[in-house]
Design a protein around this nucleic acid. Structure first.
Lengths: 297, 297
DNA sequence: ATGGGTTGATAGATAAAAGCTATCAATGAT
DNA sequence: ATCATTGATAGCTTTTATCTATCAACCCAT
């Protein structure tokens, strides 16, 4: 029965019987039969079909919601019992927005000290994708912007505020300043993240409200790429302070605080709201709470 | 898998492989195999055995906790989908303490007006039993004392305060009074519930703190029996006002308010704390909230 | 229109599992 | 010592799950 519910979850993610089957490690007829069996047990059609997958019926959406919970709890049970025997172990799957990647190490390093048998998988994803992954139980925790998160579905631990820096060569325009305003930054050609990233949209908004406009000369979804360009001394970029510091400043490249406003958005750890959590996730939340006061200096 | 978890729940209730199997509608070897299979999947012994059932291991207790949740959610899912198709239907199982039985009709009657296809099963149980039944998913709701309930496990809707009455013949001692004190009541020989009932223990406490002692001339676990004795005119009893009024007063039998203190304990509806609730249970909670202000007059 | 490519359903065979009956071994009580 | 209770085990049967192979509907591009 629980396996069948997993079929349903896979189908919701993949929106395709064949791929869902593959993801579950069964053949397509098996998955089809499984879905049909749930439908018979419930006495309702759950999937809208018509020679191809066309989404779920309203009843299907409800069953899906329950399935997420039931399947999730089953996994949590397994993990908890495992932890009782072997201490914390298993794999912790975390997704973070690119600008937060640099601080993940601040979380994983002390975690690993305490629980050496836990393994990590870290994904770099957009904030929207992170929420989807959380929904679908594909990750255990996300690190992302915590403003306007749908409370009730997730638990949140605030970690730090994003302070922005203008990264530029010391001999470039504005390169000699101790601080700059967003209005000034708007005059400089920038390397920025692609517009599907929330960080980029935030920067766009800040530039716009300072009377400027966002016309980046270069876009990428990789912070490394942006930084490597800045490092040549010929490009400039805007990055959160945390990642700018981590990437390492040379004497020729400066990270200049941008003010008015100084900090706007908060980054936090986001985990599925479910009591009790898995022991590994609970430990991560503990670690985040421990870490938070040390970050926001 | 879920069936196996149900085996475990049955075993926890029945504390006996044979009876648990019967309750699940399978044979004893089948249930034994099911339990063993979960143990293998978890990699831990869950049940302490030794030629007979000896309870659960610590891991077993944890699995049991999860099993309750998972099995409960599965049932809730089924019921919710059913409701989407047929409107509210099914059976609502409620247990109430004896002194609250009289007011159950105030809940079920308007409920039935709104949802005619829902059937009821009402049990008369002690407050302790009610909590056990709730734990084991054997009832959907309880009506009991809500003081010192373990919050977190259950949701509570207060319904009314218990006001006590001395039931006695008009021509018996105290029979002519408009109100009496607990100290005075302590002087009268009474018919009371058996000491396993919380109501009795409450009355004992009230009598004791008024300097009296509880030496009932007659004990029973049935309110009907107590009342029928009072009705002969030769016995007296202490009952909550609600049930005294419902049982019907004659001109020879009076229900005299007992003061100092007047009311102490609150009766409420208690349902498993789980979001979302089954639609039938949610509707019952609604009904209780609607009813509560009308009761406490 | 028509043919190739995709998608999910169906049929038939086989393997896996779940369940039953019958029986046994261990334990406790009389 | 004997008997009753309780849960485990063995052997067999039925049911369920899954696979491979194939089909029908549909989409799209020519």
């Amino acid at each position: 029965m629980i396996d069948k519910l997993e079929f349903l979850l896979a189908l919701a993610r993949e929106k395709h019987f064949g791929r869902a089957a593959e993801a579950c490690g069964v053949t397509q007829p098996t998955l089809s039969a499984g879905v049909k069996q749930i439908e018979e047990q419930m006495g309702v059609l759950l999937v809208r079909r018509g020679s191809r997958f066309q989404g779920f019926t309203p009843e299907g959406e409800r069953v899906l919601e329950w399935a997420r919970r039931i399947v999730g709890d089953t996994r949590n049970m397994r993990e908890e019992i495992n932890s009782l025997r072997h201490g914390l172990s298993g794999r912790l799957r975390i997704a973070a927005i690119p600008t937060a990647l640099a601080m993940v190490a601040a979380l994983t390093t002390p975690y690993r000290e305490r629980h050496p048998h836990v393994q990590f998988t870290i994904y770099s994803r957009t904030s929207v994708e992170i929420l989807e992954l959380l929904e679908n139980l594909e990750i255990d925790a996300g690190i992302t912007y915590i403003e306007n998160e749908p409370l009730g579905r997730v638990s949140i631990v605030p970690l730090y505020q994003e302070h922005y820096r203008l990264l530029t060569a010391a001999d470039a325009p504005l390169g000699d300043r101790d601080k700059v305003t967003w209005a000034e930054v708007a005059q400089v050609p920038l390397c920025l993240l692609t517009p599907d990233m929330q960080n980029r949209r935030i920067i766009d908004r800040l530039l716009k409200s300072a009377g400027g406009e966002s016309r980046p000369t270069l876009e990428s979804d990789s912070m490394i790429l942006l930084f490597s360009h800045v490092r040549t001394g010929r490009w400039a970029s805007v990055m959160p302070a945390k990642i700018a510091e981590t990437l390492g400043l040379t004497d020729t490249i400066r990270a200049i605080p941008i003010t008015e406003p100084d900090a706007v958005h908060t980054i936090g750890l986001v985990v599925p709201k479910r009591e009790p959590m898995t022991p590994t996730t609970a430990a991560l939340v503990e670690e985040a709470k421990r870490l938070a006061p040390m970050l926001d200096s």
